[in-house]
Design a protein around this nucleic acid. Sequence first.
DNA 1: TAAAAATACTCCATAGGTATTTTAT
DNA 2: ATAAAATACCTATGGAGTATTTTTA
Lengths: 310, 310
Amino acid sequence: MPMDSFSAPDFSLRQLQYAVAVAELGGFGAAAKACGVSQPSLSAQVAKLEATLDVRLFERDPRQVLLTPAGGHLLGLFRTTLSAGAAVEVAARTLQDPYAIPARIAVIPTVAPYLIPPAVEALRAAGAGPKVHWLELKTRVAEEALSNGKVDAMVTADPPACSGVVVRQLGWEPFWAILPPAMEHPQPVSLEWLSTQDVLLLEDGHCLRDQTISLCMLPEAQESPFRTTSLPTLVQMVASGLGVSVLPAIAVATERERAQVTVRPFSTAGIGRTLRMAWREQAPLESMLVEIEGVLRRALLTNPFVVRRP
Amino acid sequence: MPMDSFSAPDFSLRQLQYAVAVAELGGFGAAAKACGVSQPSLSAQVAKLEATLDVRLFERDPRQVLLTPAGGHLLGLFRTTLSAGAAVEVAARTLQDPYAIPARIAVIPTVAPYLIPPAVEALRAAGAGPKVHWLELKTRVAEEALSNGKVDAMVTADPPACSGVVVRQLGWEPFWAILPPAMEHPQPVSLEWLSTQDVLLLEDGHCLRDQTISLCMLPEAQESPFRTTSLPTLVQMVASGLGVSVLPAIAVATERERAQVTVRPFSTAGIGRTLRMAWREQAPLESMLVEIEGVLRRALLTNPFVVRRP
DNA sequence: TAAAAATACTCCATAGGTATTTTAT
DNA sequence: ATAAAATACCTATGGAGTATTTTTA
């Protein structure tokens, strides 16, 4: 392991500042006045800067102070460095605005396309307020991103497994059965009936896949050979008559418009899942995340298929 | 007068350095090791930086240290500032080479076109060595530039009037008379004879003008109405038969090739001028200027019309 | 003689060190 | 129990002050 891979210059920004002031004002006394320090203090700092750089910056003379050629070359670099330092200060002040920084929020793929658009709209309508960078990540990836700080919050159905996070419930949404339009079926669909059908599933890693499997109590053998990469594709396959499936309520309205499928409630009440938002304890944007939580909760309730839990 | 027009950030480059190390190594302990300081020292500096900027840079946790979003935004600026500081260090090291900086040398117009080319050639032939930025400035302007530091040295005929400068003689050069080719004249020209002719002069500000005037003891009234802006033009006018004039030795070889003029020595010995090089006392490039002085002195002696003073 | 920078010194804020405690898994 | 950061406390460097001297025109 390298011992001092990190090193900083031995001079200070203040020393550069003093040198620039001397060069611009043409004298140590005037520079000291402008910098608000005594002339000996400023002289000492400039002398120390010259010593550390081993470069004579000024020709001193009771009459006048002249920048040496070497000093002239360095002065531009001094100014560049000071500007960069000033930029840090400015940025830090800008960041005092709690809304200056967008929250990075991961949303699982079976929720993102249906929740993000109304959320964005609600945030836009609210005018000045939280800014969000949305990411579509599967549960595991989102958890990983949350714990290593790549995102500031995540929206999932499963309660996150990682520790040190605060979890807030956004709401409960029922599942709805979707069937090919031509299929014969009981009016409200029962889980028993569903289990006798070919149930189409998403690919591994989608929590909806696991939720559907446990819902229908499907043995491994009965799984359909298809592994769909997204809900729209899955709905399309149901519309084509390849099988039946289960949609979370939030997706129903959008997907029913895109493909010809029959949407039916379950005969049993309470079949659905809870959506949750999680962030790290002592996350710096907490107040902003709470605001966003409210926006998301309201966006959920806006959806006509998301009914209150019975 | 503005009281504190100049201000520097309250943080230090070292603090930025520490923050970058923590972000890159993912921990305070590792960062402290890499920076060669103790962990509490580094922690204290990072904490102070956060306090100064009023921005939480890291989420601390015994398990891991995470960069906050605000910290992520600032980190790039930290790096920029540190790079600028490092550039200062690099430049300062580069400037340790005494030849890294070109000397800015002013030469009067009646010398520059004839002295600079051989000097450049000699410097080039010497390979690594002094670099020079040449400027063609009239005596007064050159003196002004020398005293306010715009140039590092000047080459003139008149001894510079300003104080605090060291003056070195480069050599003495005779004057030569130039006459229209068809003109009748004594073989070596006498000052008395010259005074009876139309003597062409350069415009105001050229020392050669004043030298010629005093040489010929010309009353104001006898001046030719022409004010030539440069020696080549003046020679051209002599070639056209408009009058006679005086050339410094250094210019004779070049000008005689460009125009048809008769070149004659003066009958009186010791008519000429001394060329001098001057720089400010305690000029930082002094050793380099001494080298250049040698080059110029040799370049002068190379000229066949520059003979030793009798 | 006057103006400006350098020098001499004193003081205190603070960066850095060591030892220890806290914290979260 | 462990690993890592925070805390407590001490030391010493050095930045800033005042008073004075030096320097050069």
